[in-house]
Protein backbone atom coordinates (compact mmCIF):
# COMPACT_ATOMS: atom_id res chain seq x y z
CA UNK A 1 0.00 0.00 0.00
CA UNK A 2 1.17 3.49 -0.69
CA UNK A 3 2.00 5.87 2.14
CA UNK A 4 -0.77 8.16 3.14
CA UNK A 5 -0.90 11.45 5.00
CA UNK A 6 -3.92 12.36 7.06
CA UNK A 7 -6.32 14.50 5.13
CA UNK A 8 -6.64 17.22 7.69
CA UNK A 9 -3.01 18.21 7.41
CA UNK A 10 -3.49 19.57 3.96
CA UNK A 11 -3.80 23.33 3.79
CA UNK A 12 -7.14 23.34 2.08
CA UNK A 13 -9.16 22.32 5.11
CA UNK A 14 -7.74 25.15 7.20
CA UNK A 15 -8.93 27.56 4.59
CA UNK A 16 -12.34 26.01 4.84
CA UNK A 17 -12.56 26.74 8.53
CA UNK A 18 -11.33 30.27 7.98
CA UNK A 19 -14.15 30.96 5.57
CA UNK A 20 -16.66 29.62 8.03
CA UNK A 21 -15.40 31.87 10.78
CA UNK A 22 -15.39 34.96 8.65
CA UNK A 23 -18.95 35.63 9.32
CA UNK A 24 -19.91 38.28 6.82
CA UNK A 25 -17.78 38.02 3.76
CA UNK A 26 -14.86 40.22 3.22
CA UNK A 27 -16.02 43.42 4.63
CA UNK A 28 -19.21 43.77 6.55
CA UNK A 29 -16.97 44.69 9.41
CA UNK A 30 -15.68 47.56 7.32
CA UNK A 31 -18.89 48.71 5.77
CA UNK A 32 -21.09 48.21 8.78
CA UNK A 33 -18.63 50.20 10.86
CA UNK A 34 -17.47 53.62 9.98
CA UNK A 35 -16.52 52.98 6.36
CA UNK A 36 -19.38 54.98 4.79
CA UNK A 37 -18.62 57.89 7.09
CA UNK A 38 -14.95 57.70 6.15
CA UNK A 39 -15.85 57.62 2.46
CA UNK A 40 -18.10 60.64 2.86
CA UNK A 41 -15.55 62.68 4.79
CA UNK A 42 -12.76 61.80 2.38
CA UNK A 43 -14.86 62.72 -0.63
CA UNK A 44 -15.98 66.00 0.92
CA UNK A 45 -12.44 66.97 1.92
CA UNK A 46 -11.05 66.05 -1.48
CA UNK A 47 -13.64 68.13 -3.28
CA UNK A 48 -13.28 71.13 -1.00
CA UNK A 49 -9.54 71.02 -1.65
CA UNK A 50 -10.25 71.47 -5.35
CA UNK A 51 -13.17 73.84 -4.92
CA UNK A 52 -13.02 75.63 -1.57
CA UNK A 53 -16.52 77.06 -2.01
CA UNK A 54 -17.95 73.52 -1.83
CA UNK A 55 -18.51 73.63 1.92
CA UNK A 56 -20.24 77.02 1.84
CA UNK A 57 -23.81 77.31 3.05
CA UNK A 58 -25.04 78.08 -0.43
CA UNK A 59 -23.58 75.04 -2.11
CA UNK A 60 -24.68 72.78 0.72
CA UNK A 61 -28.21 74.11 0.30
CA UNK A 62 -28.14 73.35 -3.42
CA UNK A 63 -26.79 69.92 -2.60
CA UNK A 64 -29.65 69.26 -0.17
CA UNK A 65 -32.18 70.45 -2.72
CA UNK A 66 -30.67 68.30 -5.42
CA UNK A 67 -30.63 65.16 -3.35
CA UNK A 68 -34.08 65.36 -1.79
CA UNK A 69 -35.72 63.32 -4.58
CA UNK A 70 -33.04 60.65 -4.37
CA UNK A 71 -33.53 60.66 -0.61
CA UNK A 72 -37.26 59.99 -0.95
CA UNK A 73 -36.67 57.19 -3.43
CA UNK A 74 -33.93 55.68 -1.28
CA UNK A 75 -36.20 55.60 1.80
CA UNK A 76 -38.75 53.40 0.05
CA UNK A 77 -36.01 51.29 -1.51
CA UNK A 78 -34.44 50.70 1.92
CA UNK A 79 -37.70 49.29 3.31
CA UNK A 80 -38.01 46.89 0.37
CA UNK A 81 -34.36 45.86 0.50
CA UNK A 82 -34.54 45.20 4.25
CA UNK A 83 -37.43 42.80 3.69
CA UNK A 84 -35.31 40.99 1.10
CA UNK A 85 -36.63 42.36 -2.18
CA UNK A 86 -35.87 45.18 -4.58
CA UNK A 87 -38.12 47.71 -6.30
CA UNK A 88 -36.91 48.64 -9.77
CA UNK A 89 -40.12 50.47 -10.61
CA UNK A 90 -39.71 53.35 -8.17
CA UNK A 91 -38.36 55.95 -10.59
CA UNK A 92 -40.91 55.08 -13.26
CA UNK A 93 -43.66 55.27 -10.67
CA UNK A 94 -42.35 58.66 -9.50
CA UNK A 95 -42.50 59.91 -13.09
CA UNK A 96 -46.04 58.63 -13.44
CA UNK A 97 -47.00 60.35 -10.18
CA UNK A 98 -45.48 63.62 -11.43
CA UNK A 99 -47.56 63.42 -14.60
CA UNK A 100 -50.74 62.68 -12.65
CA UNK A 101 -50.11 65.58 -10.30
CA UNK A 102 -49.32 68.00 -13.13
CA UNK A 103 -52.41 66.98 -15.10
CA UNK A 104 -54.84 67.06 -12.20
CA UNK A 105 -53.58 70.10 -10.30
CA UNK A 106 -55.54 72.68 -12.30
CA UNK A 107 -58.80 70.89 -11.55
CA UNK A 108 -58.33 69.34 -8.14
CA UNK A 109 -55.64 71.43 -6.47
CA UNK A 110 -54.33 69.68 -3.37
CA UNK A 111 -56.65 66.76 -4.16
CA UNK A 112 -54.38 65.95 -7.10
CA UNK A 113 -51.46 65.42 -4.74
CA UNK A 114 -53.46 63.15 -2.47
CA UNK A 115 -54.85 61.23 -5.44
CA UNK A 116 -51.40 60.69 -6.95
CA UNK A 117 -50.01 59.51 -3.61
CA UNK A 118 -52.89 57.07 -3.21
CA UNK A 119 -52.45 55.73 -6.74
CA UNK A 120 -48.69 55.31 -6.27
CA UNK A 121 -49.23 53.52 -2.94
CA UNK A 122 -51.84 51.22 -4.43
CA UNK A 123 -49.62 50.41 -7.40
CA UNK A 124 -46.77 49.60 -5.01
CA UNK A 125 -49.06 47.39 -2.93
CA UNK A 126 -50.27 45.66 -6.09
CA UNK A 127 -46.69 44.87 -7.10
CA UNK A 128 -46.00 43.50 -3.64
CA UNK A 129 -49.17 41.44 -3.72
CA UNK A 130 -48.33 39.94 -7.10
CA UNK A 131 -44.76 39.26 -5.96
CA UNK A 132 -45.94 37.38 -2.86
CA UNK A 133 -49.02 35.61 -4.11
CA UNK A 134 -47.69 34.55 -7.51
CA UNK A 135 -44.26 33.86 -5.97
CA UNK A 136 -42.46 35.84 -8.65
CA UNK A 137 -39.10 37.39 -7.67
CA UNK A 138 -39.60 41.05 -6.82
CA UNK A 139 -37.07 42.24 -9.35
CA UNK A 140 -39.12 40.63 -12.14
CA UNK A 141 -42.42 42.10 -10.94
CA UNK A 142 -40.96 45.56 -10.51
CA UNK A 143 -38.97 45.37 -13.74
CA UNK A 144 -42.24 44.65 -15.51
CA UNK A 145 -43.74 47.50 -13.46
CA UNK A 146 -40.97 49.79 -14.65
CA UNK A 147 -42.05 49.17 -18.21
CA UNK A 148 -45.76 49.42 -17.52
CA UNK A 149 -45.77 52.56 -15.38
CA UNK A 150 -43.49 54.51 -17.70
CA UNK A 151 -45.60 53.31 -20.63
CA UNK A 152 -48.75 54.54 -18.94
CA UNK A 153 -47.08 57.84 -18.04
CA UNK A 154 -46.02 58.31 -21.67
CA UNK A 155 -49.46 57.42 -22.96
CA UNK A 156 -51.29 59.95 -20.80
CA UNK A 157 -48.73 62.69 -21.38
CA UNK A 158 -46.46 62.52 -24.39
CA UNK A 159 -44.23 65.21 -23.11
CA UNK A 160 -43.61 67.59 -20.24
CA UNK A 161 -46.79 68.93 -18.65
CA UNK A 162 -46.26 72.40 -17.19
CA UNK A 163 -48.25 73.23 -14.09
CA UNK A 164 -50.45 76.16 -14.98
CA UNK A 165 -52.73 76.68 -11.98
CA UNK A 166 -52.80 75.77 -8.30
CA UNK A 167 -49.02 75.51 -8.13
CA UNK A 168 -49.29 76.60 -4.49
CA UNK A 169 -50.52 73.08 -3.65
CA UNK A 170 -47.00 71.81 -4.38
CA UNK A 171 -45.02 75.03 -4.36
CA UNK A 172 -44.50 75.01 -0.61
CA UNK A 173 -42.01 72.20 -1.13
CA UNK A 174 -39.84 74.42 -3.29
CA UNK A 175 -39.49 77.15 -0.67
CA UNK A 176 -37.06 77.30 2.20
CA UNK A 177 -37.09 78.30 5.84
CA UNK A 178 -33.95 79.56 7.56
CA UNK A 179 -32.01 78.40 4.56
CA UNK A 180 -33.28 74.81 4.73
CA UNK A 181 -35.00 73.68 1.54
CA UNK A 182 -38.47 72.37 2.39
CA UNK A 183 -38.14 69.39 0.08
CA UNK A 184 -35.08 68.23 2.00
CA UNK A 185 -36.72 68.83 5.38
CA UNK A 186 -39.73 66.92 4.15
CA UNK A 187 -37.49 64.04 3.07
CA UNK A 188 -35.80 64.06 6.48
CA UNK A 189 -39.17 64.02 8.23
CA UNK A 190 -40.26 61.04 6.13
CA UNK A 191 -36.99 59.32 6.88
CA UNK A 192 -37.41 59.96 10.61
CA UNK A 193 -40.94 58.56 10.68
CA UNK A 194 -39.98 55.43 8.77
CA UNK A 195 -36.91 54.93 10.96
CA UNK A 196 -39.08 55.12 14.09
CA UNK A 197 -41.42 52.56 12.56
CA UNK A 198 -38.48 50.27 11.79
CA UNK A 199 -37.13 50.46 15.33
CA UNK A 200 -40.22 50.77 17.48
CA UNK A 201 -43.07 49.01 15.74
CA UNK A 202 -43.84 45.34 15.45
CA UNK A 203 -43.96 45.92 11.73
CA UNK A 204 -40.31 46.98 11.73
CA UNK A 205 -39.23 43.89 13.65
CA UNK A 206 -41.16 41.73 11.23
CA UNK A 207 -39.54 43.44 8.23
CA UNK A 208 -36.10 42.56 9.56
CA UNK A 209 -37.13 39.03 10.55
CA UNK A 210 -38.47 38.31 7.08
CA UNK A 211 -35.38 39.77 5.46
CA UNK A 212 -33.10 37.64 7.61
CA UNK A 213 -34.99 34.36 7.54
CA UNK A 214 -38.32 34.27 5.83
CA UNK A 215 -39.06 30.66 6.75
CA UNK A 216 -38.46 31.28 10.43
CA UNK A 217 -40.72 34.33 10.26
CA UNK A 218 -43.41 32.30 8.54
CA UNK A 219 -43.16 29.48 11.08
CA UNK A 220 -43.39 32.00 13.91
CA UNK A 221 -46.87 32.88 12.69
CA UNK A 222 -45.98 36.17 11.01
CA UNK A 223 -48.25 36.91 8.08
CA UNK A 224 -45.35 37.32 5.71
CA UNK A 225 -47.42 38.27 2.68
CA UNK A 226 -48.99 41.20 4.49
CA UNK A 227 -45.71 42.61 5.68
CA UNK A 228 -44.13 42.26 2.25
CA UNK A 229 -47.11 43.86 0.56
CA UNK A 230 -46.82 46.70 3.05
CA UNK A 231 -43.13 47.15 2.21
CA UNK A 232 -43.92 47.55 -1.47
CA UNK A 233 -46.84 49.87 -0.68
CA UNK A 234 -44.38 51.98 1.32
CA UNK A 235 -41.99 52.14 -1.62
CA UNK A 236 -44.91 53.09 -3.87
CA UNK A 237 -45.83 55.84 -1.43
CA UNK A 238 -42.24 57.10 -1.42
CA UNK A 239 -42.25 57.05 -5.24
CA UNK A 240 -45.35 59.25 -5.08
CA UNK A 241 -43.58 61.65 -2.71
CA UNK A 242 -40.58 61.74 -5.05
CA UNK A 243 -42.90 62.58 -7.95
CA UNK A 244 -44.40 65.35 -5.85
CA UNK A 245 -40.97 66.78 -5.04
CA UNK A 246 -40.11 66.67 -8.75
CA UNK A 247 -43.21 68.66 -9.70
CA UNK A 248 -42.43 71.20 -7.00
CA UNK A 249 -38.87 71.67 -8.25
CA UNK A 250 -39.51 71.85 -11.96
CA UNK A 251 -43.06 73.25 -11.93
CA UNK A 252 -43.99 70.48 -14.29
CA UNK A 253 -44.58 66.78 -14.61
CA UNK A 254 -42.90 64.59 -17.18
CA UNK A 255 -43.10 60.88 -18.06
CA UNK A 256 -39.32 60.55 -17.88
CA UNK A 257 -38.57 63.08 -15.17
CA UNK A 258 -37.18 60.70 -12.55
CA UNK A 259 -35.90 57.88 -14.75
CA UNK A 260 -32.24 58.70 -14.28
CA UNK A 261 -32.59 58.54 -10.50
CA UNK A 262 -33.23 54.79 -10.10
CA UNK A 263 -29.59 53.73 -10.12
CA UNK A 264 -28.32 56.54 -7.84
CA UNK A 265 -31.10 55.85 -5.32
CA UNK A 266 -30.27 52.13 -5.18
CA UNK A 267 -26.56 53.02 -5.02
CA UNK A 268 -27.30 55.30 -2.06
CA UNK A 269 -29.03 52.51 -0.10
CA UNK A 270 -26.28 49.98 -0.77
CA UNK A 271 -23.29 52.24 -0.27
CA UNK A 272 -24.71 53.17 3.11
CA UNK A 273 -24.19 49.55 4.10
CA UNK A 274 -27.69 48.09 3.89
CA UNK A 275 -27.27 44.52 2.67
CA UNK A 276 -28.88 43.59 -0.65
CA UNK A 277 -29.61 40.15 0.82
CA UNK A 278 -32.05 41.64 3.30
CA UNK A 279 -32.39 41.90 7.05
CA UNK A 280 -29.49 44.25 7.72
CA UNK A 281 -29.43 48.01 7.47
CA UNK A 282 -31.42 51.05 8.42
CA UNK A 283 -32.40 54.50 7.25
CA UNK A 284 -29.56 56.31 9.01
CA UNK A 285 -27.24 54.37 6.71
CA UNK A 286 -29.38 55.34 3.76
CA UNK A 287 -29.05 59.03 4.69
CA UNK A 288 -25.31 58.56 4.74
CA UNK A 289 -25.48 56.84 1.36
CA UNK A 290 -27.56 59.66 -0.11
CA UNK A 291 -24.94 62.15 1.09
CA UNK A 292 -22.15 60.13 -0.53
CA UNK A 293 -24.02 59.95 -3.83
CA UNK A 294 -24.79 63.69 -3.70
CA UNK A 295 -21.19 64.61 -2.94
CA UNK A 296 -20.06 62.33 -5.75
CA UNK A 297 -22.29 64.20 -8.17
CA UNK A 298 -20.70 67.47 -7.11
CA UNK A 299 -17.30 65.87 -7.42
CA UNK A 300 -18.07 64.89 -11.00
CA UNK A 301 -19.15 68.44 -11.76
CA UNK A 302 -16.13 70.03 -10.04
CA UNK A 303 -13.61 67.82 -11.77
CA UNK A 304 -15.00 68.82 -15.14
CA UNK A 305 -16.16 65.37 -16.21
CA UNK A 306 -19.27 65.50 -18.39
CA UNK A 307 -22.39 64.63 -16.32
CA UNK A 308 -23.23 62.00 -18.92
CA UNK A 309 -20.54 59.84 -17.34
CA UNK A 310 -22.18 59.95 -13.90
CA UNK A 311 -24.07 56.64 -14.32
CA UNK A 312 -20.73 54.87 -14.75
CA UNK A 313 -19.83 55.98 -11.24
CA UNK A 314 -23.19 54.81 -9.83
CA UNK A 315 -22.86 51.45 -11.54
CA UNK A 316 -19.40 50.93 -10.10
CA UNK A 317 -20.61 52.12 -6.70
CA UNK A 318 -23.42 49.56 -6.61
CA UNK A 319 -21.14 46.66 -7.50
CA UNK A 320 -18.45 47.69 -5.01
CA UNK A 321 -20.94 48.29 -2.21
CA UNK A 322 -22.63 44.92 -2.70
CA UNK A 323 -19.28 43.14 -2.99
CA UNK A 324 -18.34 44.56 0.39
CA UNK A 325 -21.58 43.88 2.24
CA UNK A 326 -22.62 40.51 0.90
CA UNK A 327 -22.46 37.52 3.24
CA UNK A 328 -20.82 34.98 0.97
CA UNK A 329 -21.16 32.16 3.43
CA UNK A 330 -24.91 32.14 3.55
CA UNK A 331 -25.65 32.48 -0.13
CA UNK A 332 -23.94 29.56 -1.81
CA UNK A 333 -25.86 29.71 -5.06
CA UNK A 334 -26.25 33.06 -6.80
CA UNK A 335 -28.73 33.42 -9.63
Amino acid sequence: MSPVGPINQQPDSDEHIAIGDRRHGLGTGLVSGMAPVAVLVTLALAISAFAPSFLSAYSLRVLAEESSVILLLAIGQTIVIIVGGIDLSMAALASLASVIIALLLPELGAGAVLGALCIATLIGALQGFVHVQAKIPSFIVTLAGLGMWSGIALSIANTTVPVAEHFEAVGWLDAQTWGVPHAFAFGMLTLGLFQIALVRLRLGRYLYAIGMAERVALLSGIRVWRIKTFAFAASGFCSGLAGLAMVARTSSGSPTIADSLLLPSIAAVLVGGTAITGGHGNLARTLLGVCIVAVMRVGVAVSGIAPAYEPIAYGALVVIAVAMTVDRRSIGIVK
Partner: peptide
Protein backbone atom coordinates in the same frame (compact mmCIF):
# COMPACT_ATOMS: atom_id res chain seq x y z
CA UNK B 1 -15.08 16.76 2.29
CA UNK B 2 -13.93 15.10 5.49
CA UNK B 3 -12.37 17.06 8.36
CA UNK B 4 -9.93 14.27 9.14
CA UNK B 5 -9.00 10.68 8.40
CA UNK B 6 -7.94 8.84 5.28
CA UNK B 7 -9.73 7.28 2.34
CA UNK B 8 -8.17 4.67 0.09
CA UNK B 9 -9.54 3.31 -3.15
CA UNK B 10 -7.95 0.12 -4.40
CA UNK B 11 -4.95 0.67 -2.18
CA UNK B 12 -4.10 4.26 -3.00
CA UNK B 13 -5.00 7.27 -0.93
Amino acid sequence: RPDGGTMMVRGSA
